[in-house]
Design a protein around this nucleic acid. Structure first.
Lengths: 365, 365
DNA sequence: TTGTAAGCGTTATCAT
DNA sequence: ATGATAACGCTTACAA
């Protein structure tokens, strides 16, 4: 070793002074404020201040600190900061799946959150109640500043959601909201969406309209069913109870359900499916039965997934502006986080739009 | 107030002793070990030990501690633990988008991670190099135990990825891997997938096969192109350079590109599109040109998205087993995390499978 | 069996 | 302008 070397081990760095030039060798650990302080013979508080451009630090000190920080690629430890400030700058997003609609919503949430300096933790429950609870529990242990939640289709008991509320942790519900819980909510006006679809089918002259609804306990499913039933009533059309079918959000089940509908005595001449997946399942059954859309049979879906316009026939569907809902949700969440006003009664309903395509357009108008 | 009440404020709890019964009132903060220690007149270390069933704690103490912890709904602060152990039990997943394939892979990653007690932070770059870098930076500040990364299509410089490596933070690349970086990689055998598709088109008698490739700098795109060219060569088919078209992963661009192909003098009679989105764009152009598939024109896509089998004609596609790739990736990652063996040369190639559908099956065989 | 004290990395308060 | 100290919540030697 060179005789000029004055080896000195200061934590993370092995400093060697040589003709007034400091030679640094990085070691395993991440560089910390302590390392810089030690190397520069300053206190950690001074280093901390210098790094954050506090007023009362001499220019030379600041320069020296910043230079060394740069050189050592110092990055503040977010964990330490979070522990200290009791704030993680992270949002926990709990969703049932990552299908088109929710993935799009997550994109919206992500965009707004990123902009505001927040990181998003996406946890998907895969429509499982148990996994939803597990995810909630894990994130609850001080990992997130708040929650943005859309519940699974299995979820019928809301203790885990209420717990978030009890702990006074900011919570916003979106898409699949829970009416009985008093927090801000953002969702599509599902009743209205169903109304648009149903009225459209009536206007096109379909007489016996059936609905392919989702799981019975799910709010969005019931809202869409409500919109459907209200519209029939308004048009003085009697409702055939057999024409209401509930099934999981799954193309195969929808196919079976639609086959059942088509085999009835008084079989329907149109189906309103409350999701495009269900509509596709129905479409397969309708085609298989040799019925032509829109002449013999009408079909309208929900979500307006890109696939709907590519199918033959292209399927009419209710656009739900998933990306916008995502953005609105994140904005609402951030507002809740930063205002001390009680926002628990805020509720945003996004207006849907019906996109009419071949599967249901049989009048030229 | 009752005369028996002996109000005593111990941090998070307001204890009131009344006939030897302790009445607790929860306050704003989360319960901590300190609160329990204070209430039980123990030291924090004893409480800590009791909670973790350490050997040397008296049974009564343990019982009392656990009872109170239960009552106060004590949850250990993960942040504190992470800071202490320098380990977050969180995996950072950086992906370019949340389309079908990656969403499915994330599902696979998620499933394995959850099982192993890890939480996943999904950050999507939206195919933006800038956002990819930002996401990486944010997660790097001690937030995750390691990274699982698939790069954006814009990414041509890998400093941010190399930085992860330099910091000795576990890193696994998947799907869109980078050959020049020496870490474990899991991806589809894209060359082989392209070979299957191309050979199939040749076998079906198509003579002038074009390829709709992706962005030029993207590895998966080049691998698929390589497989394509190799197969032509093996079959002694001359390659028309004009029949290689690069475009972004976007249906509209593919449509335009395909129109261009179809308007050439020596126009192709089949297209191998390296993603289903591209295939769909091509399909629209092919239909528009009045060409019938598979008779006049052959089309094969890649990814085997569910939509491919629903279209008319149903599109042949290369199945890439996204869910399995996701699971394999997470497993590899966990293995890397827990073994000290150097795994940087591990590379898993998943074997693809060609699913033949109407768009390219014109021989009955 | 229990308590004390140091430490994880940072900042804030109070001295100097 | 800088430093010492306590604190965030937890664990772990070490001491009693």
């Amino acid at each position: 070793m060179h005789e000029n070397d004055a080896g000195k081990d200061t934590g993370n760095l092995s400093l060697q002074f040589k003709n007034n030039i400091i030679i640094l060798r990085h070691m395993e650990r991440q560089t910390t404020i302590k390392d810089i302080a030690l190397a520069l013979r300053l206190s950690t508080s001074t280093v901390s201040r210098a790094l954050r451009d506090a007023a009362d630090v001499s220019i030379e000190t600041r320069k020296a600190v910043k230079a060394l920080a740069e050189e050592l690629d110092y990055q503040p430890n977010k964990l330490a900061l979070s522990l200290l400030k009791n704030q993680t700058n992270t949002i926990g997003v709990i969703i049932p799946n990552l299908d088109y609609v929710l993935a799009t919503m997550v994109k919206g949430i992500d965009e707004v959150a990123l902009e505001a300096g927040y990181t998003v933790m996406v946890c998907q429950s895969d429509e499982s109640f148990g996994r939803e609870i597990l995810n909630t529990k894990r994130l609850l242990d001080s990992l997130v500043d708040g929650f943005i939640v859309s519940v699974s289709s299995e979820t019928m008991v809301y203790e885990h959601i209420k717990k978030i509320q009890t702990k006074k942790i900011p919570l916003v519900l979106f898409d699949r909201v829970i009416n009985s819980i008093n927090v801000p909510k953002i969702s599509l006006d599902n009743v209205e969406g169903a109304r648009l679809a149903t009225q459209h089918l009536i206007d096109q002259g379909y007489k016996r309209i059936a609905i392919l609804a989702g799981p019975e306990n799910l709010g969005i499913s019931n809202d869409r069913k409500t919109g459907f039933m209200q519209t029939l009533k308004q048009n003085k059309i009697a409702l055939d109870k057999n024409h209401i079918i509930h099934c999981d959000f799954n193309q195969d089940y929808a196919y079976i359900a639609a086959k059942e509908l088509l085999s009835m005595n008084k079989r329907p001449d149109a189906i309103f499916a409350i999701s495009d997946r269900l509509a596709i399942g129905a479409m397969l059954a309708i085609k298989e039965a040799g019925l032509k859309m829109p002449k013999d049979f009408g079909l309208v879906g929900f979500n307006n997934e890109p696939i709907t316009k590519l199918l033959t026939p292209a399927i009419s569907s209710v656009e739900m502006f998933a990306f916008e809902i995502g953005k609105a949700t994140a904005k609402m969440f951030l507002e809740m986080l930063h205002s001390d006003e009680n926002m628990s009664d805020k509720e945003i309903l996004i207006k849907p739009k019906l996109v009419i395509r071949e599967s249901s357009r049989r009048l030229s108008e």
